[in-house]
Structures are given as C-alpha cells and as structure tokens.
Write a protein that binds this DNA or RNA. Structure first.
Lengths: 224, 224
DNA sequence: ACCTGAACACCGTTCAAGT
DNA sequence: ACCTGAACACCGTTCAAGT
C-alpha cells in the first residue's frame, strides 16, 4: 500500500477500469486489454476487477458502451436521405477515435440508450423511403456495420504494431509486383491506393455517400 | 503410438491442420481454434504444428487462404455493374460456409491468387464506371468488406454458442419492450426483424444489390 | 526432415478468506 | 461492500533433444 497508489486511485470503479481499457485498446489493440494488465496498471489484484464486472466480456461491453456514450444524435431535419446520412456520419464520428473498439459496438447498440435512439431515427428514415419493415431492419443493421467497416478499414486503421502493418504492405506490394502486367493492369496501377488512402475524411465521406446513394437507388426502384 | 493414430493420420501437413482448424472454427468459432487443441485432435504434440507453421497467425492465414481456394471467378460478361455484382456474389458464396473465418480473409485477399484475380476484375469494373484510381481502390476494399459484413452479420450468423446468442436476443428484446411506444414506434414495430432475418438468400441479394445501386448512383453523379 | 519433452511466461476465472 | 491470496485449467512459444 504505497502512498502513490492510494493517491493515484482512491477507489476502483467500472468507469475507471473502462477508461483504462479504452486507453490500452486505442494504443495497442484489443488483444492487449487483459484483466491482469488492467489490474497491475490500476494497482490492484486481478480479482478486484471481478467485483465490478461479471466477466471479461462484460468489461469489453462496458468499453463499447463508453464509446457509444460519446455518440451525438443529429438534428431531425431534412429529407430522409440527408437524415440517415447524418445518422451514419454521427456514428462514424463517434467510432473514429477508437477504431479497435468499433467492432464491439455492433452487439451493444441495441442495449445502449443513444444507440437505440439513433436506430429509431434510422428506421424512421428507411420506412419513409418506402422499405418494408424487414428491409428497413436489414438496412439499419447494414448502416451500423458500414460505419464500423469504414472506421476499422485496412486503409485507415493505423493502430496495432507498425512493423506488422509495414510487413503486410510490403508483402502485398511484392505480390502485386510479381504479377504479369498484361493480365493485372488495374491492380498494378492502383497498388499504392489499395495499401493506404490519402485523405481519410474523404474516405469516410465517400463511404457514407455510397451507402446513401444505394438506398436512394433501391428506393427509386421500389417506386417504379 | 497406438495403431489408431498411425492409421488415422499417416503424416502431418499444412493441409491436414488447416482442414481441422476450419472444422473447429465452423463448429465452435475462431476462439476455439487452438494450437493445443489441434494437436490433441491430430494425435500429435503441440510443437509438431510449429514445424508446418511459423506461428498461430500463420496457421489462421492458411485457414483464410483455404477458404479463398474455393472462390470461383465469375464469367467476364455484361455491364460493369452486373460484372461487379457477380464478383461480390462470388465472394459471398465462398465465405458463406465459413462465417467465422470470413473476417480473416480481409488481410489475405491480396496475397491469394484467386483473390488477386477477383480484385483485378473489380478494379476494372470500377475504372470503367468512371471512378478515379483512389476511389476505385476504396470501393474495391469496400466491396470486400461488404461481403464479409453480410456473411458475418448479426442477423445471419448462427454459429457460436446458442444460449449466448439467445441471451443477447432476449436482452435486446426486453430493452426495446421497455421503451415508450410513442418515442420509439419503428423500433417496437421492427424488433423481431432486427433480431433475425427470415430469408437469408434474400438478405444477401439485397445487400449486394444495395452496394451496386450505390455505385451506379455515384457513377451517375460523377458524369453529371 | 519431422517430431517430442520440458519449461516459460502468460491468460481468465473460481473459491475461500480477509477487512 | 470491496478487495486479497492461492489455486486451477488453460494459452502461445522457445529451446534442446530425439529419430
């Protein structure tokens, strides 16, 4: 019981643990988030965490919820297309700071107040667009997954060990370089673009735009 | 060295290990795939696997490649839209039997012969559609992720422990039921549709259709 | 070339016990 | 209520040794 400890922590709590988990995940990836590591960093026994969390999955769920806490519901104005565009953009913005945790929110969105609110607005947009309930449900889920996908995308997510990522890029580049140019012209031309994207904001914007354009196309086809 | 062992296995090989890993992953999920478990099921020491694989990640990469081996390149006929639709559909069909392994192929597609071939055709379609190289690269990556997303989607993937999934559904259903009906009308109406989709084939078809419709919408906007 | 054996440094989690 | 201690059943992986 050193003075540093008590000065640093005071008391353990769900919020304290989750915040630390988020820091570790952002810096080194989800697999670096460990009960035992969290315990040592929080100057506590591993078992102390089990008072606040039923299991490690519970802890990770809490971390995902922590990300969703930052989600901002967009204003409810404009066409259904612009409203759902705003909804997906809001989700992307919430996930962007935590690309490693993003995939965990898929299972939490319908258990989180803000997540539920955003889903409701998405479903309202999709109904207004003319999709059936089943289709609307699928498209809402699809929208969520798209947001996650954009944020965790290969070309965007730099987190994780740098040398591992560099190795992967080198291997792929070498692979493409070894291909015959007459059979794989596009692959050779766009090799660099496939490895990393230049403008991340543009990347997200185009991704969301693509999703909404697809909805509009399908909705138009439904009306025809 | 029981007679059963030698009769069963003969010799260890990458293919043998990968096949077993695929069986385990399909039945119980990726986290059930373990060096030690594979070893015991193959009647061998854990260390024997390290002769054939540099590391566990290497083994998992091999498993992903094994899935890509089954990928069938579609015929190269029709409009760019129908060709890329066929390409994504082909990928979805290859991934469908192995929803748990699907997420691993994201990092392997540019290191696999068939994956490279499919990517080349996708990039050709996107160039023909009028997208810039950077956009085409993004959309090709996006197409891959969409196929993975559809296959690993919440409403589709039944693999993993049944009671865990049932528990999740029950929790979400209860959550939605607890919401005020006047504020969350769509969520209440479509609760069942959000939990599970009825027609899986229809789910995939609509997902791919949505993606292609989005491309067509963007391409039309580029031309305007 | 292909595999075994023993050991190391990790995991999540249970259970009983402390204050 | 909140945390500790010891123990259990797992992991991936290294290194030396066998055949």
């Amino acid at each position: 019981v050193s003075p540093t400890k008590t000065a640093t922590r005071g008391q353990l709590s769900r919020a304290l643990v989750v915040d630390r988990a988020l820091v570790i995940a952002d810096a080194e990836g989800l697999e670096a988030v460990t009960i035992r590591r969290l315990a040592t960093e929080l100057d506590v026994t591993p078992m102390a965490l089990y008072w606040h969390f039923r299991t490690k999955d519970d802890l990770l769920a809490g971390t995902a919820d922590r990300v969703l806490d930052e989600l901002a519901i967009p204003p409810d104005t404009g066409s259904w297309a612009s409203r759902i565009q705003a909804a997906i953009t809001a989700l992307v913005e919430a996930l962007r700071p935590h690309p490693q945790v993003a995939m965990l929110v898929a299972h939490r969105i319908l258990l989180h107040p803000t997540g539920l609110a955003l889903t409701e607005t998405a479903l309202a947009c999709l109904s207004e667009a003319g999709f059936t309930p089943a289709e609307s449900a699928q498209m809402a889920e699809h929208a969520l997954q798209t947001a996650i996908m954009l944020v965790t995308g290969n070309q965007v997510d730099d987190s994780g060990s740098v040398e591992q990522r560099d190795g992967e890029i080198a291997a792929k580049t070498a692979m493409i370089a070894s291909l015959p140019a007459d059979q794989y012209p596009h692959l050779k031309l766009m090799a660099a673009d496939l490895m990393q994207c230049q403008d991340v904001d543009q990347f997200f914007a185009l991704g969301v735009e693509h999703f909404v354009a697809g909805l509009q196309g399908l909705a138009a086809a439904r009306r025809a």
